[in-house]
Design a protein around this nucleic acid. Structure first.
Lengths: 200, 200
DNA sequence: TCCATAACGAAACGTATCGTTTCGTTATGA
DNA sequence: TCATAACGAAACGATACGTTTCGTTATGGA
């Protein structure tokens, strides 16, 4: 045989004039699997459609572009990144970052994240979705850490956005170069800089 | 008319059993123009070929993938980023970064850079080229600034890679979200953090 | 109970890009 | 003189795009 036969999903007929949750789940699972196995390069709507045993119109009916599908795949990975809090910003960020990188490594989420950023360079609508919807939601936890540091007097409130940009960029650099392993040792020192006190 | 007719390039015949520099130049110029006008989404080998009046085999003969072409388009923008040096790392970095962002804004290089990072998520070979060839070359100038700071005793030599990662990530975050304008005001404070002294 | 409604998957549409191959033409350089 | 190799044009088969058509299914209000 020439092609590997992967789980052949059962055809799901319409269940009437409403969305079929089984199809939704099958499409998300197929998208997740394609990303895990092929990465962004193999992530096509056709591939997801075939893998899910779903019609393309069904995909396009519920997700208006690849970015929306990617965002939902990422969000479906319920396992939130959780890390202990030490009461020190640098340490809190280091613990959180290590947990985030584990999450990116142990699930298809790292590849999903990379795919989403790549897709945002393709399509202006995808970039808007990334900037205005996906990123703000994903940064809520980190913002909480910064807010706590502000209330402890560790950092100034008007420095949060700058420090956040440094923090996010640090993560993006390593995930986009597929270098999370090489960068791991740099996390603590980097977080000390992100949390550093500026001489006044 | 339905399609805008852009500069119709003259057909360049073979000049014998060697590379035709006129074709090379026409292809690079066409790639640059396509990126400037369409961005990564419209950057296809077919589009470049049509625009350059060149055959696709000629492109594939000299560049083995899109990433190589992107790298050469970026490198062809001779105008190196130049900034004065103040003898203070934070200020040197801020001046350099402002000049870099001007370069990204005033030339097609910002879009080229974004396209290269996106392409690296598509193709493993492109990621290798980005990590092992393109990035190291582009970071030479910044490394010089860090090296000078090390010799002045501002920062420790073994902290350079961490600070460099923070620096690069900061730039990537803003260019990839197409937010260079919004991020500009944050440059000085961010560079003070990248250059900050760590309490020992 | 009837029936307008809408979702379902299959298949096909036309267009675009991919990377490659074939072909006739051109000029080099030994 | 002539083997060599680059040139652009054109076409190849494969794949993906986003959309349309179609027969089927079951809902939920009249």
């Amino acid at each position: 045989m020439t092609t590997a036969k992967v789980e052949q999903p059962a055809r799901r007929a319409s269940i009437g004039a409403r969305r079929n949750p089984a199809s939704q789940a099958a499409i998300l699972a197929a998208a997740r699997a394609v990303l895990a196995e092929e990465g962004y390069g193999g992530f096509s709507i056709d591939a997801v459609s075939r893998r899910a045993g779903a019609g393309k119109p069904t995909i396009y009916r519920w997700w208006k572009n690849k970015a929306e599908l990617l965002i939902e795949v990422y969000a479906a990975e319920k396992a939130r990144v959780k890390a202990a809090k030490t009461g020190n910003l640098a340490e809190d960020l280091a613990l959180y970052t290590a947990a985030l990188w584990d999450f990116w490594r142990d699930t298809p989420s790292g590849r999903t994240f990379r795919a989403l950023i790549a897709e945002a360079q393709n399509d202006a609508a995808a970039l808007d979705g990334l900037r205005d919807k996906f990123l703000p939601e994903r940064l809520l936890d980190v913002r909480t850490l910064f807010a706590a540091a502000v209330s402890r007097g560790e950092i100034a409130a008007d420095e949060v956005e700058t420090r956040l940009a440094l923090y996010v960029g640090f993560n993006w650099y390593y995930v986009l170069t597929d270098s999370l392993d090489e960068g791991r040792a740099a996390i603590p020192a980097a977080m000390r800089l992100v949390a550093a006190q500026l001489r006044s």
